[in-house]
């Protein structure tokens, strides 16, 4: 496929909605002294639909304070800024894609289960490896496949063709995307994440979750999401668009400094966290 055709396809990303300013402010609050928590809360409160979803989410079993949080200020005190900020970002981004798949072309429930699962497994692995800011690993896992949603929204006919080829040729969805579109969800998702000015490490995890050794900013985060995506596929958690477990490259385990045995040590915690995360998925869907 010609480069200019591919470039035009990538430019279609600009047709997707912008990230709501509250999500942008929530993400960049720590680095922008002119945005205060008070200002953030007052801008979020202008959108009561978002406030209500955020409160439903922070009151879900996922965060362990079922029904005890009555306001955003209270959420900040009990859960901390990072967690509330991530909840705001998740809700805002997922709101943009809320109508996707309603035509029956794909099952959004299984898509989000895979996304939440990858977030949960990323958080468990990063927690076991004692990485800082495990919440960011959750967000990176949650958003790793947003490029697939962008494809469905921008190129619905191509997406149906991709699914057909995946089934007929027994190939992975990324192979199907490259064959039909000339682009795949990692490139499209990365372009979208850049447009939304998501943190660089999350942009990288979206771009390199099939080849984390190419990441520069936070290779461990990309490798964690890569491994988590593979594990969710292997454990049949949700659906990533095909039924194949990809080969795990030993380079990714080297980046994380782990042996396969380490994975066995994470499985119990993954089961426990997935139970709690069901409430997270329920709020999103």
């Amino acid at each position: 496929m010609k480069q200019d055709v591919l470039a035009r396809k990538l430019d279609r990303i600009n047709d997707l909605p912008s990230l709501p300013s509250v999500a942008f402010e929530a993400m960049h609050l720590l680095h922008q002294p002119d945005i205060t928590i008070e200002r953030l809360i007052s801008s979020i409160q202008l959108d009561q639909a978002i406030v209500s979803k955020i409160l439903r989410l922070v009151n879900s079993a996922f965060y362990g304070f079922q029904g005890k949080i009555g306001s955003l200020s209270q959420a900040l005190v009990l859960l901390g800024f990072n967690t509330v900020s991530n909840a705001i970002v998740s809700i805002s981004i997922l709101d943009i894609f809320s109508g996707v798949g309603r035509d029956g072309s794909f099952d959004p429930r299984l898509f989000w289960l895979h996304a939440v699962g990858t977030g949960v497994v990323s958080q468990v692995i990063s927690h076991q490896l004692k990485y800082p800011h495990v919440e960011n690993f959750f967000i990176a896992g949650l958003l790793h496949d947003i490029g697939k949603l962008a494809i469905i929204m921008l190129f619905p006919e191509d997406f149906n063709q991709i699914l057909k080829e995946v089934k007929e040729k027994d190939i992975s969805i990324i192979e199907g995307e490259s064959g039909v579109l000339g682009l795949d969800h990692t490139e499209i998702g990365h372009r979208l994440a850049r447009r939304w000015k998501l943190p660089i490490e999350i942009q990288e995890a979206i771009r390199f979750h099939h080849c984390p050794w190419k990441a520069k900013e936070n290779r461990a985060m990309s490798a964690t999401v890569y491994l988590s995506d593979c594990l969710c596929r292997a454990l049949d958690i949700g659906h990533g668009g095909d039924s194949l477990v990809p080969e795990i490259d030993a380079k990714a385990l080297t980046i994380l400094g782990i042996e396969p045995l380490f994975i066995a040590g994470c499985l119990e915690e993954i089961d426990l966290e997935m139970e709690r995360a069901k409430s997270f998925s329920a709020v999103l869907s």
Binding site: A234, S243, V245, P260
Partner: peptide, 22 residues
Amino acid sequence: YRFRKVDHIPLMIELKGILSDH
């Protein structure tokens, strides 16, 4: 079924065994 394309790779055989046990 899910490991059908990688069930000849030692690392993937090991992972499959770990998941099966679990």
